[in-house]
Simulated assay, not measured.
Amino acid sequence: MQDQIIIPACFSSGEKLMDDSAGVTRSGQSVFMSTYRTKIADQCRLITITWCKNLLLHGLSVSVEGPEGESQYTCKVELKPWYFWRKQGSKRFVVEGKLVDIYWDLKAAKFNGETEPGSDYYVAVVCDEEVVLLIGDLKKDAYRKTRCRPALIDPILVSRKEHIFGKKKFFTRMKFHEKSRLHEISIECKCRSNNISVNGNAPNGIDPEMEIKIDGHLVIHVKHLQWKFRGNESINVNKVKLEVYWDVHDWLFSPGLRHALFIFKPTYLSSTPSLVSATSSSPLFVSSLESTPLSSQTGSSFSLEGLNGSRSSDFCLFLYAWKVD
């Protein structure tokens, strides 16, 4: 057993962190959550890896889903800015009678100014002498440290949730499936001057619009954003159909620091040309947004399957873009 790790109060775990928008706003912290589904303690459960960073804190949290679906079992690690902090260690807890060990090695982790490391690290979850979840590139070091074999069932990445801050541009990266390369996604909110008066369609003669680019290519261009602040489009990128949903209502109509929500949902296509194209918005989803804003549909259980005939993947990216004036 390791010594108790002291975590600042602002670093909470699991969905509580994601739902507490006030806490994220106050601390201005970037949050990256990756949720995996795998077999642990004889049941299929969700494991959530959370990286959190603000001016005062850099932390890691690993939580395992409890019997009622809540994140009941949690391991927290504070990445301290000074030299003598525990860059390598382990922690143990019990999940319904089964021992679960969390191992981490961040001694040489390269963050490059980001919230989560890009290389030279590992975080491993072990149960029944199997590594049920392993993230990072130091896989050999992880198996050597844990002295455990890989699990027979590979974990599935279910969702990824990110809180990011910016003024006009927002950037993130995502894989459309486990073996694909990382794709660069950029979102930009623009305001164009026009001749419409204050009593016209755009206030103060400003006509907001939004551009979404993937790998530098413009894939979605929304004009007259004040009327199209919620919607969705389907695009094809490298034989993958990508459903993109947005809700930027609070950017336009709510005072103070507010976030927009973007959802990226890949689906597999059997045969599609390897180029980018766009299709029209889905009336089914647009009508549902009128009664239920995207900003209230933040859980990984939010199902996007059934909106099209293609076979859906398990992965979904939720991007919370906080606009700083």
Rank of each mutant, 00 (worst) to 15 (best):
E178S: 15
H177Y: 15
K169V: 13
Y143C: 04
E162N: 08
R160N: 04
H163F: 12
I164R: 08
K161T: 15
K169M: 08
V132H: 03
R181T: 03
K168G: 01
R173P: 00
V158M: 13
F171S: 08
E162M: 06
E129W: 05
R181G: 05
F176Y: 10
L182W: 15
V158H: 01
R144M: 12
C148L: 08
A142Q: 03
F170W: 03
A142R: 00
F165C: 00
K175M: 11
V131Y: 09
K169Q: 12
D141G: 11
R144V: 15
K167M: 08
K167S: 10
R173T: 14
F165P: 02
T172A: 14
F170G: 00
R181M: 05
L157A: 06
L152F: 07
K179A: 08
M174A: 09
T172I: 08
L157D: 00
D154H: 04
R144Q: 14
K140H: 11
A142G: 00
V132I: 13
E162A: 01
L152Y: 11
L133Y: 05
K175E: 04
L152C: 04
R181I: 06
K161E: 15
K169P: 01
R147C: 10
K139D: 06
I156D: 04
K169D: 06
H177V: 03
I153Q: 15
M174R: 04
C148N: 05
H177P: 02
K179Q: 14
V131N: 02
E178Q: 14
G166W: 04
G136M: 10
E129C: 14
P155I: 07
V132P: 03
V158I: 14
K169I: 12
F165V: 02
H177K: 10
A151F: 02
D154T: 13
F171N: 03
E129G: 13
V131Q: 07
F176S: 06
A142V: 01
T172L: 10
K169F: 02
R160I: 09
L138K: 13
L182Q: 14
F171Q: 03
P150S: 14
P150A: 10
L152N: 07
L182M: 14
K167I: 10
E130M: 12
R160Q: 15
H177M: 07
P150W: 05
